[in-house]
Simulated scan of single mutants.
Amino acid sequence: MSDIFDRDRSGELISIHDPDYPKIYKLIQEAHRITAEINTVFHDEDEIRQLFSELTGSVIDETTVICQPFYTDFGKNIHLGKNVFINTACTFIDRGGITLEDHVLLGPNVNLITTNHAFNPADRRSTISKPIRVCENAWIGACAIVLPGVTIGKNSIVAAGSVVTKDVPADTVVGGNPAKFLKHISEE
């Protein structure tokens, strides 16, 4: 049997009663400690990147900017490319894995949610996680929500306030709730 982290990232139903759940809970507590440190006093960009590196367990490139405050429930499954911009008050629920490729822009209050609860009422306290990928040069507008299992294609734009429930093809603009195709992006 694989460990609980592999099972979680692969989309298996994870119960809080799983004997290995304390391993997940320990990292949740660590993420809460680090995000509290990020959010309670002013930090310059280098300090934020250092704290974010501790949060994710990987070095954050010097071209990446993360604005305070920032919220996450886990942290270890966040992967950031180069020249990423994360605006203020973004929330990453990352147990399923969140990847932001190079040159991704996130507006304020963007929510990337990889974990959902089971539909069956008997399992409602259990969770199912699916990854989110935001491809190179994509832009997600203010207050948008991206739900589990979604990929935002290269160069695409998610309009402010949208709720993205399905993959967004490359070079397109989507908007609304649920987000729908609005137009293709053309080079001008």
Rank of each mutant, 00 (worst) to 15 (best):
M1D: 13
F5Q: 00
R9A: 11
E12Q: 15
E12L: 09
I14T: 01
S15G: 04
I16M: 09
H17I: 01
P19M: 02
P19L: 01
P19C: 03
D20A: 14
D20K: 08
P22H: 00
P22C: 00
I28S: 00
I28P: 00
E30P: 04
E30S: 02
H32P: 05
I34A: 03
D44W: 13
E47F: 10
E47T: 11
R49E: 11
Q50F: 13
S53T: 14
E54Y: 09
T56I: 12
T56Q: 04
G57F: 04
V59A: 09
V59Y: 09
I60Y: 02
D61Q: 08
C67S: 13
P69W: 14
Y71K: 12
D73A: 03
K76W: 07
I78K: 07
I78C: 07
K82I: 00
N83E: 15
N87D: 12
A89P: 00
D94M: 00
D94L: 03
R95F: 01
G96D: 05
D102A: 06
P108Y: 14
P108D: 13
N109D: 13
T115L: 05
A118Q: 05
F119E: 10
P121Y: 11
R124D: 02
R133D: 00
V134L: 08
W139P: 00
I140R: 07
G141F: 12
A142M: 13
A144K: 10
L147Y: 07
K154Q: 15
S156C: 10
I157Y: 12
V158C: 11
A159I: 10
G161L: 13
S162H: 11
V163T: 07
V164T: 08
D167R: 06
D167M: 03
P169E: 06
P169M: 03
P169L: 00
D171S: 04
V173W: 08
V173Q: 08
V173S: 09
G176L: 09
A179S: 10
H184M: 03
I185M: 07
I185K: 14
